[in-house]
């Protein structure tokens, strides 16, 4: 999981805080414990843990069990937020925007390659924002950073991006239907599109859907 990476990031901090080898070994082992979160939001925890370690080394107020507890509880919570925000909403949405651009402009305009570039810019803007802001805010506000998450202006807009996504898919479908297909053939396109949407109930994997398409088309090739 992410424990090795977590320790690797913290190494400079730990080396600075614990000049004595005995304490340093202890702190290293402490952060090798199981840890799993979302890779971007884990940075908030890196900030928080760096601050807590610092306080522990200097004042001795914070106990090492507290740090473990914070890592465990907040790691899971941030994992959940990050998975649904980045993997579940933002990446599909930005990827869809890029795909739509390429589908519409490929062959019509030289600049179709801009689609992937726009995807990288759009996606990584939020990605790096979360990473850098995460470390700094985590270090500054410690565990109070959770309250800040509620206020994050972009969360709500992104979670509602599925409406825009659906509209984009349907519009692109219409463009493809009327541009690349002629007369009666449009029925095949529509029938296939609708049947895949209906098949969604059974959660069939993409690979199987592809084989289904190939199977149907080959049978069709023999009949017609």
């Amino acid at each position: 999981m992410q424990n090795l990476g977590f320790l690797y990031i913290l190494v400079p901090v730990l080396d600075k805080l614990y000049p004595e080898k005995e304490k340093r070994i202890q702190s290293y082992r402490r952060h090798l414990e199981f840890f799993n979160s979302h890779p971007y939001f884990a940075n908030v925890l890196v900030g928080i843990v760096a601050r807590l370690e610092e306080e522990m080394a200097k004042e001795g107020e914070v106990k090492s069990e507290e740090i473990s507890a914070v890592k465990m509880s907040m790691g899971g919570a941030f994992g959940g937020i990050g998975d649904s925000l980045f993997w579940g909403a933002w990446r599909p949405f930005t990827a869809l925007v890029a795909c739509v651009l390429v589908i519409i402009f490929l062959g019509k305009w030289e600049g179709a390659w801009l689609g992937p570039v726009i995807f990288l810019f759009l996606y990584n803007f939020l990605h790096f924002h979360t990473r850098f802001k995460g470390v700094l805010e985590g270090y500054e506000k410690k565990t109070k950073v959770v309250r800040l998450l509620k206020k994050m202006y972009y969360l709500r807009t992104i979670w509602s991006s599925h409406v825009v996504g659906l509209t984009l898919v349907l519009l692109t479908g219409l463009v493809v239907l009327f541009r690349d297909w002629e007369a009666i053939e449009r029925l095949y396109f529509l029938a296939f599109f609708l049947s895949i949407i209906l098949l969604n109930r059974w959660r069939i994997s993409a690979a199987r859907l592809l084989y289904l398409l190939i199977g149907i088309s080959c049978v069709g090739g023999y009949i017609f």
Binding site: F93, L166, F192, L194, I197, A206, L209, L210
Partner: peptide, 13 residues
């Protein structure tokens, strides 16, 4: 493209 767009439709729905 119909397959891809239909899967994308299901995802966003």
């Amino acid at each position: 493209p119909a397959l891809g767009l239909a899967i994308a439709f299901n995802t966003f729905r």
